[in-house]
Design a protein around this nucleic acid. Structure first.
Lengths: 209, 209
DNA sequence: CGACTATTTGAGGCGTATCAAGAAGTGTGG
DNA sequence: CCACACTTCTTGATACGCCTCAAATAGTCG
């Protein structure tokens, strides 16, 4: 069962509208009424929870075809922001729930979607709780590599700060570990761009996490 | 909607059987075929993922009436072990899926159950990634207090090691922070028992997390 | 009681955070 | 296209929170 493809069809069926956000713009805020569900068409989005003292935990990055903003409760548990210029499909939650009430397939798609998120969250708990900084960085690179379909050049849409807030580290540690991986020849940056990375040895990287 | 109560009714409806496990016994192992779903009747269970070097991340404790072992994939993503002598209700996954195929309410209950787990996992990510040791301990105590219905004496079923593996800490750090909280009068232990804790000031504790 | 496990406490070390500064990259207006 | 301001990223020096190792104490169970 392909969750994403089925979810896309839901959107098409119910007249989803398209909206664009500039880099850095908020799509929905933590605590606001959860009235819309989104799907990334172009660009990328971060979903995070905030803590006192400016601390953030990014719980997920949403890339092409990912769905986000779906809640069982009344309000969003995350703030979602575009991390590059981004276009999303939007459907009213009300519409989706109306359909789910009559079409079991939609409910099952929502279940599948939620289960996928849960699976990701549980793996990420292991990473946050028990991996060291290098293992975290490597796991992150391989996750992005996989989700972007293993391109020859990994074009990361997020800043080092976003990476740090996803991995429970600081910007400096992220930077240092990337430098270390570069020094040991496991990856390299494209010239004039620190966010375009070539993974030189996926197998060895896999062994580090 | 009360997930737990509805899930219990599912079990009753479909002839769930009762099984008991001794403290420390494995209920299901990571990677095994996920053929059964469980509900805690008496006792408590830990679900964890293992990493190289003996590292563990406990993703959840399952207490009275909690359901665990439900998977969308073929195999268990966790090892589940009784942490005290425990009795569970067991239903065949096959049975549940057969019913879910005809009864939408069952599918919706599974969705609600999964969404609850997801919500917990996402809060726990924030804890693991961005809280310091004292904030983690306090959050843990308040979580257990809430889930055990705020009893006058908090009777923890788990060891300090389990707490540590849930919070991404070591046994020693857990012990030190508990001592510190005791020294500052925010909690006390019952005599002859380090696992029975009285929270002396829930409000102040709340302020620490 | 005696053996064992769980917990606490202390001393010291390590990994990551913090603070600081400079380099690299990006965007804007001329 | 360049000049300038700004943000992002890197690198170095140092600090500190939590881990590691070790040993004593408390609790459990035969």
């Amino acid at each position: 069962m392909n969750t994403v493809a089925q979810a896309v069809s839901i959107h098409a069926k119910f007249g989803a509208s398209e909206t664009s956000f500039r880099c850095g713009q908020e799509i929905h805020g933590q605590g606001e009424p959860a009235n819309y569900i989104y799907e990334v068409q172009r660009g990328a989005v971060r979903s995070y929870k905030a803590l006192s003292g400016g601390r953030r935990q990014i719980c997920a990055f949403h890339l092409h075809n990912d769905i986000f903003g779906w809640e069982t409760g009344l309000s969003y548990r995350f703030t979602a922001e575009a991390i590059v210029d981004t276009t999303v499909l939007v459907v009213r939650r009300h519409t989706l729930e109306y359909v789910a009430a009559t079409d079991v397939k939609v409910t099952r798609n929502l279940l599948s979607l939620t289960a996928k998120s849960l699976e990701h969250a549980e793996s990420h708990m292991l990473l946050l709780g028990r991996k060291n900084s290098l293992e975290k960085i490597v796991a992150f690179l391989l996750e992005m590599d996989r989700r972007l379909s293993c391109p020859s050049v990994l074009a990361l849409p997020m800043t080092r700060r976003d990476m740090a807030d996803y991995l429970g580290l600081t910007v400096e540690t992220v930077s240092r570990d990337l430098s270390q991986l570069r020094a040991s020849g496991l990856l390299r940056f494209l010239e004039n761009s620190q966010r375009q990375i070539v993974l030189q040895d996926r197998e060895k990287l896999q062994g580090l996490t």
